[in-house]
């Protein structure tokens, strides 16, 4: 199987079973957060995507329309992209995004992939997105008593940490 065929199969899976209508150009498909866990399970068990490749969370602050009386264009939210890879050729990467609001959480993939333990901890630590039912959601990189999540857009890069800097 070539990589293009694997990509077509992945797109067909998204469209038929997980309600994804459009695949954006130059970007990864956006999946409803309710399907997040089921999609990972289907990919692992039915299609052999067994390598847990990455999880990337990113923070998007609220967008306001300054011309139009600060009307809300987009609320503050997180996006979490996940990538799974199959072993051996063609090593296709199945990647999708989910969007969660500030008070929502993403279901953890730890029951499927043991690597989600540390990766999700790291994203929680740095970005602040919460993972529901994670067995051990502590900080990984920063000290336990650190305040704030450094990779959020509202966190200044030169934030001081007395007495050390």
């Amino acid at each position: 199987m070539t990589r293009d065929e694997a990509q077509e199969r992945f797109v067909a899976l998204l469209q038929e079973r997980f309600g994804v209508s459009e695949i954006p150009e130059g970007n990864y498909p956006l999946v409803d957060v309710a399907h997040h866990f089921e999609l990972a399970r289907a990919l692992r068990d039915e299609f052999g995507y067994r390598i847990y490749s990455f999880v990337v969370a990113s923070h998007y602050p609220a967008q306001l329309d300054a011309k139009n009386d600060n009307a809300v264009i987009d609320t503050e939210h997180y996006e979490v992209a996940t990538g799974l890879r199959c072993i051996g050729a063609p090593a296709h990467l199945a990647s999708w995004r989910v969007r969660v609001e500030l008070d929502q959480s993403v279901p953890t993939l730890f029951p499927l992939f043991a690597g989600a333990d540390w990766q999700e901890r790291e994203q929680y630590d740095l970005v602040g997105v919460r993972f529901a039912d994670h067995p051990d959601l502590r900080r990984l990189m920063m000290p336990e008593d650190w305040e704030g999540h450094p990779l959020r857009k509202d966190y200044a890069i030169e934030t001081a940490c007395p007495p050390w800097r």
Binding site: M141, M142, P150, A156, I157, T159, A160, R165
Partner: peptide
Amino acid sequence: RDIYSVIPGIDTF
């Protein structure tokens, strides 16, 4: 030097 988690030189402590 400017990053939140790095000490700007060890001669500070």
